[in-house]
Amino acid sequence: MENIIEIKGLHFSYESDDAEKKPVEVLKGIDLDIKQGEFVAVLGHNGCGKSTLAKHLNAILLPTEGTVIVDGIDTKDNEKLFDLRQRAGMVFQNPDNQIVSSVVEEDVAFALENLGVPYEEMRRRVDDSLKAVGMYDYRLHSPSQLSGGQKQRVAIAGIIAMEPKCIILDEPTAMLDPQGRKEVLATIHRMNREKGITIVLITHYMDEAADCDRVVVMDKGMVVLDNVPAKVFSQVDKLKAIGLDVPQVTELAWELLKAGCDISPEIISEEECAAAIEKLFNS
């Protein structure tokens, strides 16, 4: 598989308005490659730089040092800016603050209107995207009539309409109720599976990360762990040291291992955990 995102030696500092203050370095040398079609979760607690990293993936922020290449386009290349943003769509945390129009279908069309897509093509893509996220029946509603999860799905539809190769979601479920979270996550997973869209999911929910292909853990502006979920979560000590929790089942297995039981610490789902404990009893 080809790399869709290539990050090399990425440093980023926020310039302070106050000239005497030193610029705050948020990202301190990140190297990360993401393959086409991968579902990657980026974990980290507040202030670790994960949102800043996300904003580099479609040139909302530009590196102070190093390069970010998305689908062969350097994010510093200003001439291909719209090309880049079309290929790497972004969904934000607050569903209210990213919906532009008072009618659902017009909001989904917003990016296409900006790109000058002709009417017939636009109509088709808007309808297809709304159907893909299961919001077609609400196409003429006003966003204020929708629940948080529905609004977030509309926001996703607005990105899918651009037919991107990659979607970056910056804590899309942080403001949603459990039902909304479930809806949104199911939608993201389906987009990944059915359309082969690369997903970069920024989150601080461990259980969301457990369902991904790969987990990248960030701390203080650096990548500290990068592996499949089971391998990442089995490093309970390391995760706890940087202030992250592990899924309950992983922690249980880890405690059992510490107590001397013969159990693998690479457990991330309840089924796996139940099976392992059953085996433990039988042996």
Partner: peptide
């Protein structure tokens, strides 16, 4: 704060003013 976030979201969706816009 909303205005700031909305502006970023609009930029992410390739908003660049009225030039060359088509309409749904």
């Amino acid at each position: 704060r909303r205005a700031d976030e909305l502006a970023t979201a609009m930029e992410c969706r390739c908003y660049h003013g009225g030039e060359g816009r088509t309409r749904l």
